[in-house]
Each structure stands twice: as structure tokens, then as C-alpha cells.
Design a binder for these strands. Structure first.
Lengths: 177, 177, 177, 177
DNA sequence: CATGAATGAGTTTTCATTCAT
DNA sequence: GATGAATGAAAACTCATTCAT
């Protein structure tokens, strides 16, 4: 519902009806309307991001790790497009309510990418002169943007298949020669 | 005010007070509250984006054009950080109200980048095997992301100075060899 | 709880928690929330007032009877300060719910005082020209007021020790002779 | 309406209807429902009590002053019986909201009575052995009680005519001599 | 043109009460 | 008898919008 209408356009009554419960029941599980968003973030989005770390640890060299991360990212967001919408909306807004949560999740992601880039520099597959703190944000931004495009295009094509083209753009830009 | 509090958190009364007029006066210039957002977009954001075209036309080769576009983009958004906040918030949300306007502005931008990339391919400075419709979105997304990072970091550093590092990442990725 | 927060500020859930039972259990012993107040009045406050009669019957002359009544009144309310709070709050409000109970209890008290005053007139210890129906209310009011002062002062001093000073004021008044 | 139904039994909608305005209009003049009570107290009850001082200053000896005070008190409360109900209900409850206001108003009254009693002692019309801090509360309590009885009896008789009998009881007490 | 008081529909939230377990 | 999750009616409050001045 938040994905379709946005948080402020969704009323608690609607949410309750969609959930098949009475209005008051909502308040047995959420402190207030805001808390619905907060709990969504803590129990859904955070989990997804936490799963990225495992995926990366499995892969071998840094390029594979980056590929795994991006693929997993796109796959998860494709699997739950509504979460994707809400996550994006929240990330690019400045909502006090969950500002800290957003920062935390974002940092988690950037740390992973940062480690991959450093490892890549050691391996010799990534450029030594990379401005890492920019490069990692650049990568997250580009993936976010790919997701945003997919959403705005109506979720019609296969988002995960964007992995290779994206990696290609990243690597040939940051790859050593 | 929209930048600080968001659209739904801002009341018409607050807007009127900030503007130094009475509540009713707002309705002499705007059909309703929504219309304030629509008109903002039409007369502020659209103008900015329209100015990009001129900037690009001035420059010489495609790399210079891309550099000019990105620099102008960052400069304008830095100059009016509040507009930047609102623009970003709207872009990554799914507001029916201005969905079309967003698409239009976005298309305007992507068209410019697309032309630059094609020109670059002709000139031999850009890779011939580029998946252009992805690459141009990739570039917009990366610039958006740079702006978003700047906003979330409190607008403290010089955003325009990110131009060269960004271009470097783009070009060495998409440049021909 | 009613003493601390008042009847309307206390929820049935709170009452149940304080009583160490489940919410629903309350409704096995009380018809509804109002009934809690009604039963409190019938089984607690009424008992206390009924006990006054016995106390008075024990004493000898009318002055002693009045002294016994006031002392017992102050002692009982001091013993159960929370009941005192609730009783006072209810007496000076106009709650349909227990209007009749209040009247009954109040009449019970005024009847006792009235009898004492009449006895005193016969004995020659009370003024013959007393406007009895005023005087008895005057006495109840003054005792109530002493209790109210004690409550508002935080129940810190010994309420029962106010008996003598009060009786002195009743009997002799404030005028010099 | 508060006099009739009590504060918690009165809804803002009812208040608005009685006032002949829309619900929202209430909130242009009162911060919230509680504020209605607070403002009532500050602008109505406080004024009444402030007027007592003037009345007392006019009279001559201390007995006259006491008589003037009591008469004015009864007259004002008789004139605005609804205020009387609300004032009494609030005084004998423990509402945090206006606890301080009640204390202030009550102190104002007790101070006046205290001064009168001291003056009476100097004049020789009041007993020298009076426990003044008790005696003044005793007087306020007795007057309050007279008002309360009048209210509960349906405001049918002339409250102000109770002045002389009350003063008589204060001054001479109930004891025969 | 501008004002700002008034409106009332629409929202969030509370909580007495019920009833299947 | 006891439970406590679920209910939904009712209440407080907000705020976009209107319109007489």
C-alpha cells in the first residue's frame, strides 16, 4: 500500500482493511502509524541488506564479489518490488523518523563495496588511483538508479539481467589496465 | 519549506506565513496545495533542466559536452540546494500529481546524454558497443547519487568539484581504446 | 488508582493489571466500568459511614458524641486516604451514576449530627436557637474541608489530631466573649 | 455544559454545537480540550476571587469584613451557578491540569480570611487563642459546604440569605453559654 | 486584490467490551 | 472461571479550502 500510494496517502483504516483486521488491532502491534514504517524498515529492509554480506563472502575474487553483490541486490529488489518502492522513496527523502536507519543500512552497503574495491586494488584488478569513498557511492547510486528506472518503467523487464551490463560499465571504468 | 519538512508535512498556513501573505492569498495564485508543487516543478526545475541544453551546445567535443553538462548540473543543484532536495524527493517517489512532469524532465536530460554518447561514438571517443539506453541512465543515476550524498552529508563540501572525479569514472568506463 | 488518576483517567486494562487479573476477568465481577465505582461506594464507603453510628451510640453526652463522630470520621479517612480522595471527588461532583448513593450516605451522616444537636439542646449544652438543618451541614462541611486540606497537603500530618481544635471551633465559634 | 455533564463527559463537538460554531473553530481559541478548562479558570474563577479583596477593603471592623466576604462569595456563586459547580468539582478533585491555579485562588482567599482574623484579635472581637491557620480553612470549608448543599438541593433557595446564619455559627459556635 | 476567521470532512488514536479458547 | 486478542464506536484534533469583509 505504501508502494502504491505513499505513506502519507495511506490511512490506518485502509491498512487495517487490507490486513483484514479492525483499525484498533493495528495499534496492538504498532505504537502508531509511524511505527509501521519503522518496523517495516527494521524487519524487512534491514534483513535484505544483511543478506548481501553472506552473498559476497561466498564469491572468490573482487570482481566476482562485486558481481554477486549487484546481482543479489537486483534480485532481491525485483522479488519484492513493493519493498523496493518504499525503500527508494525513503532513501531519497529526508524523514527524521528513519533517517538513522537509512544511514545504517546505507553504511552497511558502502562498507561492503569499499572492502571489495580495496581487495581489488590489492589483487591488481582495480585502479590504484581510485577515490574509493566516491567510487563506492557511485556504484550504489548507479544500482539504485537502475532499480528506479525499472520501477518507473512498470517493473516489466528482468531487472536481474541488468547485472552484467552494469558490471561492465563499472569495471571498465574502475578496472586497471 | 518542502525541502526541510516535506510536502505533506508543510501546511498551507505555514507556506503563507513564510511567503508573508495570508492563507487565502495562496489560492489566488495556486489552484490548490498540490498546484504549488506542480508550479514549482514547471517554473523552477524545468527551467534549470532547460538551461542544460544551452550549456551543452556551447562545448566542443563530446567529452567536453558531457563534462559541461555534469558541471552545470552540479552547480545548479548546489546553488539551490532546497530545489535539489525537493527534486530528488519527487523523483524517487511515485506521486501521480507530477509523474508526467518528472518523466518529461528526465527524458529531456536523457536525450541530451544520449546525443552526446552517439556523437562520441562517431568521434571515436566513446565505445561503439555501448548499450546507450542503459549508459545514459547510468550517468544520470550516478550524478543524482552524487547530489544525494552531498545533501545527506549536510551540503558541506563543494559539490561542483565532484565533476572531474565523476567524469573520470564515466569516461574510463565508457571510453574507447 | 482512582485516587491517583481519577475515574476517567483510569483504564480497565490498568485496573486489571493492578488487580493481577486479565482484562476480561473484571467483567465477571463487575457489570461494566461504572459498576466498579458503584460497588466501591456500596461496599467500602457505605460501610465506613455505617460504622459511625455505632461509635456515636457508645459515647455519653452530646458533646462527647460529636467528638467521637468527628474523631472516627477523621481516623477512618486517614486510615484509607485513597478512599478519602475518591469519596471527596465524588461528593463534590455531579455524577448521575452514584448521585443517589452519595445522597444516602450523606443523609445518614447528617441524621446522626442532627440527633446529636437536638440531644444537646435538650441537655442544655447546645444553643436553643440553632438553625439545625444548617448547623449539621455546616459541621459536615467543615470536617470535609479539614480532610480535603489534609489530602491536598500530601497527607503528611496527623489528621485525627485535628479533632479537638475542630470541636472547639464548632462549640465556641471564633468570636471572643 | 461542564456543570451539567462534567468535563470528561462533554465532547468537543457538543461544546462547539452549544457555542454555535464548528468543531475546528474551538481550536482557534483553545490549544486543546484541556485548555478550555484552564482558560475558564483563569478568566472567570480568578476574576471572581480577585473581586473579593475589594469588597473586604470597603467594610469597617473585622466582623463586617468577614460578613462582606461571605456575602460576596455566596452572591457571586449564586449569580453564576454553573461556575460554582465547575469550581467545586475542580477543587475537590486532584487534576494536575489546574492544581496550581486552584492552589493560587485558594491561597488568595485564605490570606484574606487570615488577615481578617488577625485584625479581629487586635480589635478584641475574635478569640486570642485561635489556631488561625485551621480557623481560616474551617471558614472556607463551611462556606464551600453551604454552596455545595445549595447546588445539590437544585439551587432553589436564596443562597446569599445564608450569610447571617453562617456568620452567626462562625462567631458564636454551636455551644450554649 | 488581499485577508484570515470559520468550516467540517477526514484522520489518528483510545479503550470499554466481547468471546473463542 | 479465567484469559487476552480483537473489535469498532467514539473522541480529539488537523488543515485544505472558502468567502464575507
Amino acid at each position: 500500500m505504501f508502494a502504491r500510494q505513499g505513506f502519507y496517502q495511506s490511512t490506518v483504516s485502509q491498512i487495517a482493511r487490507e490486513a483484514g483486521v479492525a483499525d484498533g488491532t493495528i495499534y496492538l502491534y504498532f505504537k502508531n502509524k509511524d511505527d509501521i514504517l519503522v518496523q517495516f524498515f527494521n524487519f524487512r529492509a534491514k534483513q535484505v541488506f544483511a543478506s548481501f554480506r553472506q552473498e559476497v563472502d561466498k564469491s572468490g575474487n573482487s570482481t566476482d564479489k562485486l558481481r554477486s553483490l549487484v546481482r543479489r541486490h537486483l534480485e532481491e529488489f525485483q522479488r519484492d518490488g513493493d519493498m523496493a518502492v518504499v525503500y527508494q522513496a525513503l532513501t531519497y527523502q529526508n524523514i527524521d523518523l528513519i533517517k538513522d536507519q537509512i544511514k545504517e543500512v546505507s553504511k552497511m552497503y558502502l562498507d561492503i563495496v569499499g572492502e571489495i574495491l580495496e581487495k581489488g586494488q590489492e589483487e591488481g584488478t582495480m585502479r590504484k588511483d581510485l577515490y574509493i569513498s566516491l567510487a563506492k557511492r557511485f556504484i550504489l547510486g548507479a544500482v539504485d538508479s537502475a532499480i528506479n528506472n525499472w520501477l518507473r518503467a512498470g517493473r516489466k523487464y528482468d531487472l536481474a539481467s541488468m547485472t552484467e551490463p552494469l558490471i561492465d560499465l563499472f569495471i571498465r571504468g574502475i578496472g586497471n589496465r
